[in-house]
Design a protein around this nucleic acid. Structure first.
Lengths: 338, 338
DNA sequence: GCTCCTTACTTACACGTGACACTAACAAGC
DNA sequence: GCTTGTTAGTGTCACGTGTAAGTAAGGAGC
């Protein structure tokens, strides 16, 4: 196999015996141009035989917009839900002929450099950017789609947490969350949603504690919180957590205090991470369904791009995954997945 | 603020009172062109005032190569090590003025579509692609860098696992891995590395079992394996696992069988995932150091691109993270991180 | 005064695509 | 036979950049 050059639309035109314009009309399937079937076929065959693929950069230059969609990920710890959301978004975007690529920001100054290399694209972010970044995008005329998860009621998953605990008779609740700045975008609405749901069920306001720690809290810190909560006059009997990692820390802390889960203390997580079946006891948690979020985000994007209709506000629904950390299951705490 | 158009090098030239070529020479810092300081300064000031950023698509068209590096990720479950490797690679690539973007493949046919949208770029993959994909890249003249982790001795992390177990007196070992096809690229070398290290230490060949399961194995399957291993005439006293998720399943299975870890059975993982401190007992594991891998990959890339020197083969080193699943720590099994 | 060399630029092309405007050939209408 | 309309195309420009080739001005050499 010799060193062959990339074939261009000029090569296709020459091989099909037509002009380059005709090639463009055929391959872009324009209906306002009359192209007889034999010619159309000649062009298509030539393109196939040459393995012609339009040059992305050239096309982006001409169109003023590339077919890339940049997902700007914050530098936060991963969870199943984030990768699920990414996968769903990848599929949705691919269905429109575009491609989603993910960029994890590394420092504050990197965004400008990255955009300079991607430029005529579309950007999506799962958490709000600060003012400087937004004006950066505006200066380059890059449309930005933001998942506004901060709207009231946006986090219905915490309602699922609360309803499960309340349904099992727990009246005095604790909420364990994080004080990590980069996670506040998620932590804020979740805490608010949990408190609102508790109020809606006529429960006393849950006690909330936010612990530091870049990805996970320290077990000793959690133990001291639990020790405090369970030794009150009206002891906390159930703890809902910001995510599964916090819940796992909570289980470890309970064990170190000699508390039995779920009898002395119920614990519920959020995310359904891969390790959730393997904690002791196996973690009851709530799984988000990010496929809907992906469709919502892309609807927002098309609204910005092609003037599609503005989509309704959207709250990703949560699905309860019942294991053994809120109440004892009828059988052994091991599980068999489908 | 009015709707202003993107500024181009023509705008900069007009504002500085020079031709577009001069602008290009100044901004690209060409040393073979003589540009007096006052002119240089006028151009730089004009570019700053207009917020000029070169158009990425146009530049890629002209240069025949974009400044994007595409990391092709397989559709495998995440671990701390993969995201660490991505982050390190992002930093290394950014230091060269290029940008790394990540694409998670979703189906077999998607690669062609994605490349058509990115085209004049560079591709990096952490696991080998099949023949069709490689020829696809070749047809589009996209350089491909592959991390060849399958070379002998490439997985030194398993040697760390073995040495820790052997150092604590374990002579009869089990190795628990996965039969999942998409993970074989990692599983194969790891198993081979563990067996080789065991032979090197004069131990009997470890018993190996590969379980199915897309991300994690089923606890009952693991329990039946452990039950078998521990009831032999020469019972297995320590188990090394493919990753931390398998190790967590192993701990849960041991608990369900009434085995005490580490007294009845030692368990060691690989990855140091975020949840590892929270298992019961806290998981002893091995953390890979992917920063070195990132540098190695980029050295391979520059070798392909600019004819830099070919780098030496590289094996990412593993670092032992000692917790409580191989031997009892002197104090309580909770831990405080720095 | 003429050539030769350097300095400080400018003009013009190429990269590959998409699309508007134009045209040659031919049939229909009267 | 002339206009009008349709069919099946083609010629050419624009997108924004990087750079090779060209050129006008000014001084040195004789």
């Amino acid at each position: 196999m010799t060193e062959t050059a990339r074939s261009t639309s000029t090569d296709v035109a020459r091989r099909a015996g037509v002009s380059r314009a005709t090639v463009s009309y055929v391959l872009n399937g324009r209906s306002d141009q009359s192209i007889p079937e034999p010619t159309r076929r000649r062009v298509l065959d030539a393109a196939n035989e040459l393995g012609y693929v339009p040059h992305a950069a050239s096309r982006a230059l001409r169109a003023g917009r590339s077919r890339l969609v940049l997902l700007i990920d914050a530098d936060v710890p991963w969870s199943t839900n984030i990768t699920d959301a990414e996968d769903a978004l990848t599929a949705v975007v691919a269905a429109t002929g575009r491609s989603l690529v993910v960029w994890r920001r590394h420092g504050p100054g990197d965004l400008a450099a990255t955009l300079a290399n991607l430029e005529p694209c579309v950007a999506i972010t799962l958490q709000p950017l600060d003012v400087a970044d937004v004006s950066l995008l505006a200066g380059l005329h890059i449309p930005l789609v933001t998942a506004d998860l901060g709207t009231p009621g946006a986090d219905s998953a915490t309602r699922v947490q609360l309803e499960h605990l309340a349904g099992h008779g727990h009246r005095r609740l604790g909420y364990l969350t994080t004080s990590e700045p980069s996670l506040q975008q998620f932590a804020g609405p979740r805490t608010a949603g949990f408190l609102a749901a508790a109020a809606g069920h006529g429960l006393a306001a849950p006690v909330v504690v936010a612990l530091q720690g870049a990805s996970a809290p320290d077990v000793r810190d959690v133990a001291s919180v639990l020790s405090d909560w369970t030794s009150r006059p009206d002891p906390v009997t159930a703890v809902a957590c910001f995510n599964d990692l916090h819940a796992a820390a909570c289980l470890a802390a309970a064990a170190s205090l000699g508390l039995t889960v779920p009898d002395d203390l119920a614990v519920i997580g959020l995310d359904d991470d891969d390790f959730a079946p393997f904690t002791s006891p196996a973690l009851t948690t709530v799984r988000l369904q990010p496929q809907g979020l992906a469709h919502h985000l892309w609807a927002l994007a098309t609204h910005l791009l092609d003037e599609g209709p503005e989509p309704d506000p959207f709250a990703p629904p949560g699905r309860l995954v019942e294991r053994a950390s809120v109440h004892r299951p009828p059988t052994a705490p091991t599980e068999r997945k489908p």
